[in-house]
Design a protein around this nucleic acid. Structure first.
Lengths: 218, 218
DNA sequence: GTCAACCTTCTTGTATACAGAAAATGCAAG
DNA sequence: CTTGCATTTTCTGTATACAAGAAGGTTGAC
């Protein structure tokens, strides 16, 4: 499948916004970026509109587009929704998950355990992502899977922060075990609770997140 | 706030797709539509891309954009997610809802009751929408409110079908009462269950929905 | 008569040109 | 020195022009 330049540009810009190359509030100049990418304004505008619809930039009529990083409040809100959506995935998956998928979860968890032992935060992060995506898929609801994965992706740059907490890796690991146990027992409510607690930002995590946001905002 | 033509066109096209003016699979011709709206292809293309991102049309590179109504399977999936998201709104609202909002819900329900007595399906539909949006808002999570409202909006054309079921209005009414009672009692799980059941497509509703979709697909 | 290759034509994707609005700058007046 | 208004400039939004790819028809060969 041949992709349009606008899509490629949108992806690159998304990357730059997420990794902080373009900080919050910066105006994205159409002509400057068009020159940089070696294209005309037309595909670049299309890319910017795509970003605007996904919420990464704000498009103010006759003024331009501005990078719009979510503020502390919105981030907390997004993490809360993320936790609830994962809980829903877990609740549905508890009734629908296949034995093969349970084995996949075990395998992903084994690799997670290795990463914890190393300890290799990056490897853990990768396997953690696999683990969660399996659960999205096993919800048996393709639409839910897509929506949850989309939000997961959007929170990606902020998710890494959580893993920086001292002792977070072993704790996260234990939560993974509990999640798989609940799914294997086909206990919907237990799986939902475990996933909600696993993803939610609360207590120590909350304070850490707020501190990071405060330092980033300066 | 001055709106761009592309946004106005996107709204109009969305309306036409939802009300069936453009049935599933139809190709949306850029030049023809541009002439019809009296604009050039540029803003029209922007509108089409907006629709593509919201999932109403499929954009196939070098081939054009085609109306993409959700199939039966995807519709069932979307309704399931809708039910779960409303349940989440209810769960959070149970702990956060204000007395003023409870009064609002009572007021909306009173108007619903009048509509049932009439019976006036259109009036009921309108007040029902108000009722649900209050709950979204009282979840206390602006992001969740937005996302839930967006899905609600996307399912709007299919939601009306449910009300056509014989005896659905009084039943829906009773469910509204139960929802408010659960919220007033601050019983999170009860509110979640009530809302999930209220929105979910199941049993009689499911068969009816499938029949409608089968006749629409012919 | 049928199949295949080529050509025509139509449509999308991209570039450029133009118009109007907002912001910035400079000048003048208090 | 500050403030307000006008002018200029820059940038967005829209229109048009151009290029490349895909579909369909026609013609020629087997």
């Amino acid at each position: 499948m041949e992709r349009r330049r606008a899509d490629i540009i949108a992806e690159e810009l998304e990357e730059r916004i997420c990794d902080g190359t373009y900080p919050d509030g910066v105006r994205l100049d159409e002509v400057r970026l068009a020159e940089e990418f070696g294209v005309s304004r037309t595909p670049l505008r299309e890319a910017l509109q795509k970003l605007a619809l996904s919420g990464l930039v704000a498009q103010i009529p006759r003024r331009g587009v501005f990078v719009r990083q979510p503020g502390p409040v919105q981030l907390i809100e997004m993490f809360e929704v993320m936790a609830e959506m994962e809980a829903v995935c877990g609740r549905l998956a508890a009734a629908r998950i296949s034995d093969a998928a349970l084995a996949e979860l075990d395998a992903a968890n084994a690799l997670c355990r290795e990463a914890v032992a190393a300890p290799d935060a990056d490897a853990y992060y990768l396997e953690n992502e696999r683990f969660h995506h399996i659960i999205y898929r096993e919800s048996g609801n393709g639409f839910l899977e897509q929506e949850t994965a989309a939000l997961h992706r959007r929170l990606k740059p902020f998710r890494r922060m959580q893993l920086r907490l001292r002792g977070r890796l072993p704790q996260s690991m234990a939560e993974h075990e509990e999640i798989v146990a609940a799914l294997r027992a086909a206990d919907a409510e237990r799986a939902a609770r475990a996933l909600r607690g696993h993803v939610a930002v609360q207590g120590e995590k909350f304070r850490f997140l707020m501190a990071r946001l405060a330092s980033a905002a300066e």
